[in-house]
Amino acid sequence: MRRAIKGLLIKEFKLMKINLRFFIIIMIVWGALMASQFGGTFIVGYTAMLFSFLTVTTFSYDEFENGVVYLFTLPVLRKDYIREKYLFGFLISTLPTILASMMLWIADSVWGEAEHPGVYLLSVVVSLPIAYLILALEIPLLVRFGSEKSRLISVSMLGCTSIGYGILYELTGVESTEAVSSIAALGTGVLILLAVAALVVLVMMSYKISCRFMEKKEF
């Protein structure tokens, strides 16, 4: 790994340490609340989403008092900065998600009735792509617009998607369940392959766009 990327990763983890206690309390309280409603595996998906959003906070820290400008006076190339953000995003959503799934399995085994291990694995396999998708959408926005504006844009995008879906449903009368079942007819193997391929393409596109935004950026 390039030294600049490694150095930046160390910085992110040091920053993460500051809010870790607060973050874990929130996670436990809110997670327990939601898990009681939606079942234990919910906590796995919840962990993936929550930790993927930590990448957003690292951008906020970098923006504070122009810290990002200082980073570029260190031996950090613009591409290194982008690569590190993706790497951090993937690491920080993947590792805790796997850990949460393992802890859930252990907790179920000790205090309740554990499901088949495949169920826990499946919860990880389903949750992580969603977390990666969030990262792929968020990072280019964060690079281009900064953490404040991109937060607004993300919320607006979410709203627009819901409205768009509503309009589409009104016009075509196609419900999501029908669409899903027609896609499901393709078969599980093909579907997984398609999903993985789509995700890889999306992440690569997201990375390229972020690099382009960063190259154009002025400090």
């Binding site: 150095g7 920053l15 008092e65 810290g67 990002v68 200082y70």
Partner: peptide, 16 residues
């Protein structure tokens, strides 16, 4: 007009 991330300590920056 810029510098180290001020939420960290010098000790945090040493390994960086």
């Amino acid at each position: 007009d810029s510098g180290f991330c001020s939420y960290l300590t010098i000790r945090d920056f040493l390994p960086v």
